[in-house]
């Protein structure tokens, strides 16, 4: 009986401690600290889900859009820093992400861009949709424009004896085919489309940067600018690195004290251990980045190839 009483007393003591802990804990619920979300846009901007596995997610704007959604739904996230390190990519994918940024801003959350090495063309499209843009003075940005790549291999095909026959449903179905020269009518069709996308791009920049559209048009001849030049031209607000952008986001969101930084996206264990290493990155990312570098070197404008439109 004595032993039973002692054990019951101990059990009651443990239960009391448990209740006390829970009660004390409920009074000290840590106020969900205000967070700054950091979302990375890296590499060529392409639509779709990209590639992902258990350890890492990369490529494809669906991931970025998903992360923007998560940041929008997370009440503790007061502002988002969009870290852009991209030479651009598909117009549709850029537009899709840009619209998602606008929706995020419409909920009252601040979105600030921090430009890395490159934030050109489609990368700049995204930046233009945000509240404030930070760039390094040597960041390559701008490249506001659109192009459709087209190669004519007709002569080469003739030399090696390749003759491709096509049964078409319409005369323009094989527009941009590399085995024949483009007709003037087809050139005009493509030009109209390029102009349409270009004008949409201008509107995005003019609205985002609160600039006159004609003023934007003067700057948007496809050339790239350094961060320094872009600031002088009004395409960038401040010069600074990612942490300056975070500080800027904190100030704009009116966060008092030190906010918690919440990074979105998975980091590969390889990168965690050895740091960012291009060789360790995926083959896809390398190929895409090289493509983008080539595009940038050759006057870098937004790649709006029909492949991306899925109109083939």
């Amino acid at each position: 009986m004595y032993k039973k009483s002692v054990i019951i007393l101990i059990v009651l003591f443990i239960l009391g401690s448990l209740g006390g802990l829970i009660f004390r804990g409920s009074k000290q619920v840590p106020s969900q600290s205000e967070k700054i979300a950091v979302i990375y846009v890296e590499g060529v901007i392409v639509g779709g889900r990209g590639q992902g596995n258990v350890f890492v997610e990369q490529g494809g704007t669906d991931q970025v859009i998903k992360q923007l959604h998560e940041a929008r739904d997370d009440r503790s996230v007061k502002a988002v820093v969009l870290r852009v390190n991209s030479p651009g990519g598909s117009a549709a994918a850029s537009q899709e992400v840009g619209e998602e940024i606008k929706k995020l801003r419409a909920t009252g959350k601040i979105v600030v861009t921090s430009m890395g090495d490159v934030a050109a063309s489609g990368g700049y499209w995204l930046a233009a949709c945000t509240d404030k843009i930070y760039a390094n003075s040597t960041t390559m940005t701008g490249s506001i424009g659109v192009y459709v790549p087209y190669a004519n291999w007709e002569e080469l095909y003739k030399k090696i004896g390749i003759y491709q026959e096509k049964i078409k449903s319409g005369q323009h179905k094989d527009i941009l085919s590399p085995e024949r020269a483009m007709t003037s009518e087809e050139r005009a069709i493509i030009q109209v489309m390029v102009d349409d996308i270009y004008n949409q791009f201008l509107v995005v920049v003019a609205e985002g940067r609160k600039m006159d559209i004609e003023q934007v048009r003067k700057l948007a001849d496809g050339r790239i600018y350094t961060g320094n030049q872009a600031k002088q031209l009004g395409l960038v607000d401040e010069l600074g690195n990612m942490y300056d952008a975070i500080d800027g986001a904190v100030a704009l969101a009116g966060i008092k004290g030190k906010p918690e930084i919440k990074e979105y996206g998975k980091q590969s264990p390889w990168n965690m251990i050895f740091g960012v290493n291009e060789e360790a990155g995926s083959l896809l990312e390398k190929v895409l980045f090289n493509q983008a570098k080539n595009a940038l070197n050759s006057g870098g404008s937004m790649d709006v190839s029909p492949n991306k439109w899925q109109v083939k």
Partner: peptide, 12 residues
Amino acid sequence: RLAIIPLWALVS
């Protein structure tokens, strides 16, 4: 293992 609970309560 249950002894940890009163100890945590004390630590709090």
